[in-house]
Design a protein around this nucleic acid. Sequence first.
DNA 1: CATTGTGAACTTATTCACAGCC
DNA 2: GGCTGTGAATAAGTTCACAATG
Lengths: 214, 214
Amino acid sequence: MAIKQVPPRTISRVLLYIRTLGNLIKDKKDRVSSQELASMTGLTDVQIRKDISAFGRIGSPRIGYRTAELKDTLENFILQKKVVHVALFGVGNLGAALLKYPGFREEKIRIVAAFDIHPSKVGREISGIKVHSVDDAEEVIRRTCAVVGILAVPERESQKVADLMVASGLRGIVNFSPVSITVPPNVRVKNIDLGIEFISLFCETQRVHGSRCV
Amino acid sequence: MAIKQVPPRTISRVLLYIRTLGNLIKDKKDRVSSQELASMTGLTDVQIRKDISAFGRIGSPRIGYRTAELKDTLENFILQKKVVHVALFGVGNLGAALLKYPGFREEKIRIVAAFDIHPSKVGREISGIKVHSVDDAEEVIRRTCAVVGILAVPERESQKVADLMVASGLRGIVNFSPVSITVPPNVRVKNIDLGIEFISLFCETQRVHGSRCV
DNA sequence: CATTGTGAACTTATTCACAGCC
DNA sequence: GGCTGTGAATAAGTTCACAATG
């Protein structure tokens, strides 16, 4: 099969399939149909089949997919068994919570380094990760092989820290601060803007129903 | 102007414009062009003009937009000056961090109630919000007029708590747990799946450059 | 004459409809 | 018969090109 360019949205969904398949395997299910996957993920069965078909002919008519085989195939294409090494910048409330976030353990994500500007935080250890000074970022990131970083610092520092992250060799930034940062075109940014998520969800609920109070 | 159905992505972008305009107004700028907004938000000027045009003819050729006027118009269409009342379920690491998240203060978002299953957490107060027992959810949510909720409980409890949130009258759920939840069709869900965000960002970086270590 | 506003072209993503297969 | 895989149709979203305008 020719290697197609897998679009970003498909990648996100495939990651969801991989996780779901992991749960199925844990439950000793070794077969699954696209319909079952659909009801587990909230997507449609056609979409799932289409997504999976980008990676080859893996399913069998009447039987569905073998969970272990499908998971392996998807993981090989997408992640190549790699572990994602992440560097955290900003050990405030949100940053510290992410350090302790148990979801990462299950996935192939490991926060390998943490940094903060404030001397009071440097040197402390949270969840087994030592907090470094941002001055050491380049060296620590090279040593720990971090490839993507979390930006979880106050708004007014985010561009400065983002510049530092780029200078330290990171190639992707998950930006939790509510301002957009400017980076060179070879660095990818994903904004997770909590405020906008809440308000847009709220707007959608308003659209469907009328308003209640306030 | 006829009221068009504003698509969800446009809403998210408009919320970004509103915030950006707020910053401009703080800086005493009373005019802004679509190009300036573009460079501030990382979007294109055409997209911004197109988005804004859904709300009327607000700009002036050669001059651009008046910041205050544009912000008012967008806010009126989208939020109608409302404050989003949010109920938090699960006061663990992530939940507690969200309670303290300063970004919400700036936006029109207020976490008005917090709940936890564990008796050890019930009754405590975090960031001025008292933690209630989930048993009181319906009453407290009615009293506080919460419309959307945050689901930040461990994976194994998320469906159970989601059911409770729906039963308590919430109309939207921001789901931070890495499993998809099932809700009635009149309830909107937004999944914020941190694991998938990191891995997909990583995949994108791999696509652009070669791999480095690991 | 720089800037908005917008129909048209294009691109991307999803859904449909059904062929193929065990 | 029940399931996968997929070309074709449709829908959604973005960009282009340019007319309109103070």
